[in-house]
Design a protein around this nucleic acid. Sequence first.
DNA 1: GTAGAAGTGGAGCATGTCCTCCACTTCCAT
DNA 2: ATGGAAGTGGAGGACATGCTCCACTTCTAC
Lengths: 205, 205
Amino acid sequence: MTSPRLRTDAAANRARILEVARDTFAAEGLGVPMSEIARRAGLGVATLYRRFPTKQDLVAEAFAEQMSQCAGMLDAALADPDPWRAFCRVVTEVCAMQARDRGFSAAFVSAFPDTAQFCALRERAEQGFAELIRRAQDAGALRRDFDVADLPLVLLANGGIRAGSPEATANASRRLVAYLLQSFRAEGAAALPPPTVIPLDTALL
Amino acid sequence: MTSPRLRTDAAANRARILEVARDTFAAEGLGVPMSEIARRAGLGVATLYRRFPTKQDLVAEAFAEQMSQCAGMLDAALADPDPWRAFCRVVTEVCAMQARDRGFSAAFVSAFPDTAQFCALRERAEQGFAELIRRAQDAGALRRDFDVADLPLVLLANGGIRAGSPEATANASRRLVAYLLQSFRAEGAAALPPPTVIPLDTALL
DNA sequence: GTAGAAGTGGAGCATGTCCTCCACTTCCAT
DNA sequence: ATGGAAGTGGAGGACATGCTCCACTTCTAC
C-alpha cells in the first residue's frame, strides 16, 4: 500500500497529524479547518495535503481505528451467551462511542462513501447485528417487531444529542439509550408505526 | 413596532420574502444562502437585507408562526382531561413538527438567542410542560423519574433523525417517538441514569 | 562531505457565504 | 404631473475554507 517508505521525519510528522486530527475531530467535530489541524501539529498546510490529498482521506484514516474498534465490540457481543445482554452491550457501547466523539457519525457517511473496505465492514456489521437481533428475539427478550433498520434509527437519534460539555453529552446519551432499551424489551410491547429504511448517505448533514 | 408603514409594493415584497424563506428553510434547512432566498423571491439581495438586517432576523420572523403554533398545541393539551393523552399529544405533535421542518430546531437556538419575547415563550412552554408532567405522573401514567429535562432530550434525539425524503424522515421520527413514549409509561419502568440539564445554546450546531 | 531525492512552508487561487454600497427606479402626496 | 422619499438591484468587500504551487530546507545513501 504505502510502498515507498517515508523518511523518518516525514513518518513522525504523519503520525503527529493523525494524532492531532483524532483529538481535534473528536472534540470539535469535522468542521475544523485543515489549516487548524496543521497549525496544531506544528506543520504547514502543504505537508498535511501531501500525506492526505483530501480532507476525506484524513478523516478516513483518523477514524479507521474506531472503525475496527466497533467491529471488535460486535465480535465480543456475538461471543456473549446471553442474547439480551449482548444486544444491549452493542447498542450501549456504540452509542457511547458516538457520544464521546463528535465527528464519529459524520465520519461514517462523509469519509467512506463507497470504498470497498468500508462496504465490507458495514456489510459484516449489519449481518452481525441482524444475528444478535434474531438471537435476542428467539430468547423472548427482544420485541418481535424490532427491525434491523432500528439500529440506524437509534444512531441517528443518539447522534442528535449534544449537550454543553462532553460529560453532559455522555450523560444525556446514556439516559436516552436507557429509555430506548427499555422500550425494546419484549414485555410491554405495544404497536408501533412501521420501520423505515434509512439511506445512510443522506442521513447525516 | 413597525412604526412607519411600508410602501405597498415593499410590503408585498416583504411578505413574499417571508413566504419563500419559510418554504425554503423547511425543505432545506437554514443552510440556504440569502442570495438563494432572494433569487427565489425574484428580488435582489439588498432588498432582503433592507427588510431583515441579518439572516437571524429573517429566520426569527420566518419561524415566528410555528412558534405560536407550538404554544397553541401546549394550550390544547393543557385543556385535555386525560393527562397521559395530553402528554403524548404534545410530544408527538412537537416532534412531528420538528421532523417536518428541517430548520425548525436550528431556528430555535440560532435565531432567538435572548430576545425577551422568546424567553417569555420558552418560560411558558417549560412551565406548561412541567404541569403536564405533574398531572400525568399523579395519574400514575407517566413514570415517576421522568424529568423536565427529558423533553429537550427527546427533541435533540428526534432532531437527529434525517432520512432521505421528507416522508421517510416523518416515518422514522414517528417510530422513534412511539418507542420513547412506551418507555415513558409508568408500568415496567426500570432504573435510569440521572437526567442532565441541556444548555440550549450549545445543543444544536 | 555531498548530491539529489524527499520533504516543507506559506503565499495564494477558487469557491462560497454574509453583508454593504451606491447609482438607479418606483411610488405617492401634493 | 412631479419632486423627493422610499425602495431596489447587482457589483463587490470581507472573511472562511479546501486545496495547489513552487522556491527553499532537510535528510540520507553513497
